[in-house]
Write a protein that binds this DNA or RNA. Sequence first.
DNA 1: TTTATATTCTACTATATGGTAGAATATGCT
DNA 2: AGCATATTCTACCATATAGTAGAATATAAA
Lengths: 211, 211
Amino acid sequence: MALKRDSLKVRQNDAGKTVKVKRARITQKAIELVASELFARKGFGATSLDDIAESLGATKGALYYHVKNKEEILRLIYLTVLTASEEPLRRVVETDLPPSEKLRRAIEHQTAVAADRSPAMTVFYREQHYLTGPFAREIILRKKAYERYFEQIIEEGQASGVFQPSIDPKIATYGLLGMCNWLSQWYRPEGQYSPQQIAAMFVNMTCGLNI
Amino acid sequence: MALKRDSLKVRQNDAGKTVKVKRARITQKAIELVASELFARKGFGATSLDDIAESLGATKGALYYHVKNKEEILRLIYLTVLTASEEPLRRVVETDLPPSEKLRRAIEHQTAVAADRSPAMTVFYREQHYLTGPFAREIILRKKAYERYFEQIIEEGQASGVFQPSIDPKIATYGLLGMCNWLSQWYRPEGQYSPQQIAAMFVNMTCGLNI
DNA sequence: TTTATATTCTACTATATGGTAGAATATGCT
DNA sequence: AGCATATTCTACCATATAGTAGAATATAAA
């Protein structure tokens, strides 16, 4: 079922000379990207390693030169999403901006991540139960820590009297994250609004947090 | 691996008489409930029919007397969630209440559904890609129709001048549904707040929709 | 008790798939 | 060119599991 790749054939180049084209080489990143899309579309369990290999124009055996097993591919996706998420949010929290502005930026950031890592995000919030061992525990902890950033911003706003004190910061965090992360269920890049525009509407919707 | 069920043995009843105990009978609903929990915890793809049968104290063969195949179990779950969701929301939309009150009730309803059908909801928003054929298409349509209810409420509120006109009703709907449905990722019945309390906080958060 | 029906169990098949070993091929260096 | 290394391919194994057939057992009615 593996595709016969052009790259294995001898081709004519621009000058008409026959040259052996470099074999299209597989990389970990390529595996991760292709897998993200397949996992998002068909699910981790329903995507076979043969599927992934075929999408890369290679065979299953080649995959195992770059990754230890199927779960490692999933691990790569989780690490990518976390890496893209954590740092920027941490920086927002550590600025001196007023809480409402911090929250605005946090929402913008979360929306942006959900939008442009769309397939990876879909996987991130859907296939966690396939992770096992220490890595699974690590993800749980890092997700909790990530939520804490949002909670901090909200607590700060409540302490300085600009956010409603009647809303539990944890619940508010879940609400905001749900709103933003849900993008992975509906967002399409070709849609009417940019992630920034969507984030702006979300901010407007939730200015109910302000007093 | 199948459990030997007590119900197959001859027991002594309270009066000391030996009686044949009724065999614990499997029903479609029992299969659906057990499967909901297993699917939510391990995923549809990673849950085998043997797993489900074992949780019911039966064998796989018995399952096939009540359902046609594995996908039908998933279909049952989807139908249950939709049945529990659609009607009450439709009634809210069709009342004469002011839009802001309609929206409050809609949020309350959505939160309640997400909370007390928790495993089923997890499955509902995670395993849709395992549905095939006409049923898959039906689900897509009914989900869209469901979103339309929310959009209607928001449009109505904007038309009567009580909701901000700058927010696209579709985006607002996605935001609100995301907020509520995200409960399936974190809600635990033994937690600090009731679904009603959570819904009240969500309503407060999003009163930014009001002018 | 007998009989018909409903329900479950046992044992099996066919298939898909994660993973592996070693051969084959490409690549880059000397 | 020749060699060592990196990378991919082919062919295979072992296992899990959806689904099936028919025997076995329970249930209810007469």
